[in-house]
Simulated assay, not measured.
Amino acid sequence: MTTIKRSSKGATVEALVASDPDLMKALMKQALQEVLEGEMTELLGAAPGERTDSRQGYRAGYYSRGLVTRIGKLELRVPRDRHGEFSTALFERYARSEKALVAALAEMYVQGVSTRKVKAITEELCGHSFSASAISAINKSLDETLARFATRQLEEAYPYLIVDARYEKVREDGVIRTQAVLIAIGVNWEGHRQVLAVELAHRESQSSWKDFLLRLKERGLWGVEFVVSDDHAGLRKAISEVLTEAVWQRCYVHFLRNALDYLPRKADDDCLQELRWIYDRRDIQEANRDLVAWISKWQAKYPKLVDWAESNIAETLSFYHLPRQHHKHMKSTNMLERLNEEIKRRTHVVRIFPNTDSCLRLIRALCVETHESWLEDNRYLNMTLLVEQKKEALRLAA
């Protein structure tokens, strides 16, 4: 495999491709290999060589598997585990996002490299050059499929909603700008996760988030009872205006990260760890008792942190009103963060998208694949527990 070296900050796409004709193929192979390694790490609960109590098994070498793509055949090393439990959907699900990724790379090369060099490079790697018409042909079928996914009617209720944003760099009118990628995941009453929406916005703001949520409602979103997000001010306001009946849960992971701003840099005691333990309690009563004890213990040493936490922590404890089995899944945006990490593995190959359409095309293609795999999986949550809890609450109220 070609060794991929980090370019200097000012290196152009033209210089990279000219210095290494196998760059496109090498980048694709590296990205897919990282996906396989990530899947194995997730299965085992540990990275290679990592010592952890949560480990579920051990690696047992690799076997070779070829994957035919538009840039040639890639020889990948598929990980094995000792019990033979590892399987990957990469080879079956790769086709759609591979086309989107190759199209993004091709557009980038067409825009950043002279016609003569594009022709020479793509003919060597792919057997043909990526002209504007060739790129258009690749994208046409993709765009039709992705448009149907993005505009589909939502015909069932989603009691749980998780929303978050990530950022990608896109070239617009010759200027590199940062675009916010807004994503929403829903959990239906059967307990299955679904990717509900993926859109681009110039920035995260109250108006962009409000428009995003309103478009979801126009497509039929209803029955939302519980929303998880970070503490972005615009997003919070949009949720309160559009999803008026929903309880809001501030992601506790983001909250703990924010807490570092109120803690001295050289703090090395158990203050934050004890704060984190509050989120592992059985119910809100236990959590509140631990919170009172935590405040009493650390008030004198870290008054800024304690005052801030006391004023804001209630927003992160909403999940205690859900069935206990749902707590670990619904107290943070981790479900969506994992999807974002998968997106990052692929978009990192492109680095700077040639236009917004290219960026949205690749990310939606990846989200469609995730969405379809979730539909085939066993249910993520047992939602009958929430139904029973609601019935019991009505009985007690009566």
Score class of each variant (00 low, 15 high):
Ser7Ala: 13
Gly10His: 14
Ala11Ile: 04
Thr12Met: 09
Ala15Leu: 12
Ala15Met: 11
Leu23Lys: 09
Leu23His: 10
Gln33Cys: 07
Glu34Ile: 03
Val35Phe: 00
Met40Thr: 01
Thr41Pro: 00
Thr41Cys: 09
Glu42Val: 04
Gly45Arg: 12
Pro48Gly: 06
Glu50Ile: 13
Asp53Gln: 10
Arg55Met: 12
Arg65Thr: 04
Gly66Asn: 08
Val68Ala: 15
Gly72Val: 08
Gly72Arg: 09
Arg77Met: 15
Asp81Ala: 03
Arg82Lys: 11
His83Ser: 09
Ser87Asn: 12
Ser87Lys: 15
Glu98Val: 01
Ala100Arg: 04
Val110Ile: 05
Ser114His: 11
His128Cys: 03
His128Thr: 07
His128Trp: 04
Ser129Cys: 11
Phe130Glu: 03
Ser133Thr: 11
Ile138Phe: 15
Ser141Trp: 04
Leu142Glu: 13
Glu144Pro: 02
Glu144Tyr: 09
Ala147Thr: 14
Phe149Ser: 05
Leu154Arg: 06
Glu155Arg: 08
Ala157Glu: 09
Asp164Lys: 06
Val170Asn: 00
Gly174Val: 10
Gly174Ile: 07
Gly186Trp: 06
His192Met: 06
Arg193Gln: 14
Ser205Phe: 07
Gln206Gly: 00
Arg215Tyr: 04
Arg215Pro: 01
Val227Met: 07
Asp231Arg: 09
Arg236Asn: 07
Ile239Thr: 01
Val242Gly: 00
Thr244Glu: 12
Val247Asp: 11
Arg250Val: 02
Tyr252Cys: 11
Val253Gly: 08
Leu256Trp: 01
Asn258Pro: 02
Asp261His: 14
Asp261Lys: 13
Tyr262Asn: 14
Pro264Trp: 02
Gln273Asp: 15
Tyr279Arg: 06
Arg289Met: 02
Lys297Glu: 14
Ala300Lys: 10
Lys301Val: 01
Lys301Tyr: 06
Leu305Gly: 05
Trp308Lys: 09
Trp308Ser: 10
Leu317Gln: 10
Tyr320Pro: 02
Leu322Gly: 02
Pro323Lys: 10
His326Glu: 08
His327Ile: 08
Asn334Ala: 10
Met335Cys: 12
Leu336His: 00
Arg338Glu: 12
Arg338Phe: 05
Leu339Glu: 05
Asn340Leu: 07
Glu341Ser: 13
Arg351Pro: 05
Pro354Val: 03
Asp357Gly: 04
Leu360Gly: 01
Arg364Tyr: 05
Ala365Thr: 04
Leu366Val: 12
Cys367Thr: 03
Leu381Tyr: 06
Asn382Ile: 10
Met383Ser: 05
Lys390Gly: 01
Ala393Trp: 09
Leu394Arg: 12
